[in-house]
Write a protein that binds this DNA or RNA. Sequence first.
DNA 1: GTCTATAATGAGATAGAC
DNA 2: GTCTATCTCATTATAGAC
Lengths: 213, 213
Amino acid sequence: MPDSPAKKPSRIQQRNRRVILDAALEVFSKHGYRGATLDQIAAEAGLSKPNILYYFEGKEDIHVTLLSQLMDTWLDPLVALDPDGDPRREILDYVDRKLTMAGELPRESRLFANEILQGAPRISPELHSHLKPLFDEKCAVIAGWVEAGKLPPLDPQHLLFSIWATTQHYADFEAQAQVLLGAETNPQPRAAAHLRAMFGALLAQPSGAASVH
Amino acid sequence: MPDSPAKKPSRIQQRNRRVILDAALEVFSKHGYRGATLDQIAAEAGLSKPNILYYFEGKEDIHVTLLSQLMDTWLDPLVALDPDGDPRREILDYVDRKLTMAGELPRESRLFANEILQGAPRISPELHSHLKPLFDEKCAVIAGWVEAGKLPPLDPQHLLFSIWATTQHYADFEAQAQVLLGAETNPQPRAAAHLRAMFGALLAQPSGAASVH
DNA sequence: GTCTATAATGAGATAGAC
DNA sequence: GTCTATCTCATTATAGAC
């Protein structure tokens, strides 16, 4: 690790770190943490295995670095949810942003899903420090909208869960969707229309979620 | 492999196979395919490693067996969707059944999610032979309901995706939900209420999914 | 049928030359 | 900074005794 007196990473160093991280994202998202090997990452990056270990302390270091960087990007769409905007519009726009992001960054989505699925062993601290506060804050915003009568009664926490689940589904379960939809070019437009209709219906509901029975 | 002249597995053999499969489900669903080791499975099953390999040809054999058995159970709730029933009721009951199943069989949900997430390398044939035909059949049923005016216009394929995504989310992303909801006893009742409200709103929508802008 | 011991492979990490 | 060669350990699978 090059960090003796002056800790200024050269342009080559910065570039190599990026190349390695991009290769690692490709491999980790496809095979999971344990399924990925340094050989695969090295091959994908076009570097030798020891060279990889010159830039990172080990396999886990690479993985944690990826997850940490990802977290910020991943939360951007939710950060942008504006408490002063029109409630219905804000939430539907958030759904759009989230779906777009899953479509553009499917590897990141799968990397995250892999980690959570296995109990978040390496990203748990970030969940508490970054995700939880933001989640609570935005849930309070939505709850405020409901109390102000700007939205029908609904459960902010589970609404956000549903948004996450449905938007990330297209990245995380892509293999299944490809089998079921056939070689259809791109499911995204129809997915976007469906999700707008679904969440739009929920948010437009007059009032009092009538029991179904 | 005991299959020379008479292929009748003894009661002990049947029992041991079940014990091994249950242990394997526990381990595979927690660590993924590559993350799981025969040592862990053997320890969980209370058997020796060579004994495991007496009953199964290898690690992959165990995994494939699990996935194949799971597929049938997993599709039961959808099979039960009745073309002759009340459309809205049928779909909402399906959501309930799916959520209940994910709550009762979270390990199975995660095993399946792990496999799909990594591109369904081992279960792809079953997706084509079992899931696809059923999916097409039930989509046609729902499409028929829409054409008959019994349901508002909606996209059957993406409706099913949304149902799968939201119900399985609670099992697959349990680690995240636990962080965000705190040590709350059981999210299931509120999740069920939310999903009934959401899908109920979509299905009750008068007609013509109005563009949101 | 089940075990102990061990072979064979694969993968993370390091030594040391260049 | 980067490479070749190597070490070490974990893991799948087998051999052979009981």
